[in-house]
């Protein structure tokens, strides 16, 4: 058979089937082990059964959060899950907005030699600071409110984005900028109408690749000092081994991140139809 060949051409059905196999196997293995553990010890809390997880998730998503005494309007929108998701998304959104100046800074550093000379060494050093080690300092300096968490993300992720944009800017062939000047463009035309437009899809890809880092720092901040958010909930539930909610939460986070990533990919394709990923 031709399974192990480089030139093998699996059909559509086969590809789909194969791509889901590991998911199915993972789920099956989990439930098998979980059932076995529950047979041995009905009180087992490490691997909750499906019913337990569904019940836990139902409580998280469809019942008003305990600290909420208002009139329930929509069930979901006053639930714990919704509140946590909202809080985390808000922080995520702020940090995404803060990446925008980072892109512009990288662009200017790459194009304008004086800006490059001024910032590059510092950013390179800044990039080497282990953001998590700054956590205590941040909490002391900015308090334990939103600012500290957003700053953590800024410190953790922006240097990477700045340097990435810088390198992408440097990678634009000199012919392109020279050409633009000969066509009558000024410095800022070259920066925004030639170079930025050309690197935009790659910058967006680099941000996509850094989504995980953004989430990592966000979660670290939430776990350590927060009163809401998805990571706060996970950390809180850990104390009473609330695995029936933790596991669905983890999957929910993965799903959200997947959707954001997918959305950015679609956006990229829509905004830059000329771009071919190589």
């Amino acid at each position: 058979m031709s399974f192990a060949l480089i030139h093998a051409k699996p059909g559509r059905t086969w590809s789909t089937l194969l791509s889901w196999t590991l998911f199915a196997a993972g789920i099956a293995a989990y439930f098998y082990v979980s059932q076995a553990r529950h047979r041995a010890n009905p009180e087992d809390r490490v691997m909750p059964t499906v019913t337990q997880m569904v019940r836990g998730m139902y409580a998280a998503a469809m019942q008003p959060a305990e600290d909420d005494e208002q009139q329930v309007s929509g069930k979901f929108f006053s639930s714990m899950l919704w509140k946590d998701t909202k809080a985390t998304s808000r922080r995520f959104f702020y940090s995404m907005i803060l990446l925008f100046p980072a892109v512009l800074l990288g662009l200017h550093m790459g194009l304008f030699p004086y800006a490059g000379a001024f910032f590059l060494r510092f950013v390179l050093f800044f990039d080497k600071i282990v953001a998590l080690s700054l956590l205590p300092i941040l909490f002391i300096a900015f308090g334990i409110d939103e600012l500290a968490k957003v700053m953590l993300i800024v410190i953790g992720v922006t240097p990477t984005i700045i340097l990435d944009t810088f390198n992408l800017t440097r990678g634009v062939p000199a012919e392109q900028t020279v050409k633009a000047f000969t066509l009558g463009a000024g410095d800022f035309d070259v920066a925004y109408r030639v170079v930025l437009k050309q690197i935009a899809p790659r910058v967006l890809n680099s941000i996509r690749l850094n989504l995980k880092a953004v989430m990592l720092f966000l979660f670290a901040g939430e776990m350590i000092a927060s009163t809401d958010g998805l990571a706060y909930r996970i950390a809180l539930l850990r104390r009473h081994m609330g695995m029936d909610v933790i596991i669905p939460y983890v999957l929910w986070v993965a799903l959200l991140l997947f959707l954001v990533d997918y959305g950015m990919r679609l956006l990229n394709r829509m905004l830059h139809p000329w771009f071919r990923e190589s």
Partner: peptide, 28 residues
């Protein structure tokens, strides 16, 4: 510095990849 008195057709990378043919021509 290069400016618009001297037009240039470089050996390679002469068109802006993010612009259509029409926009490339009207860019100047």
């Amino acid at each position: 510095q290069p400016d618009r008195t001297r037009g240039y057709v470089p050996q390679k990378y002469s068109l802006f990849p993010d612009k259509t043919v029409l926009d490339n021509i009207t860019f100047g």
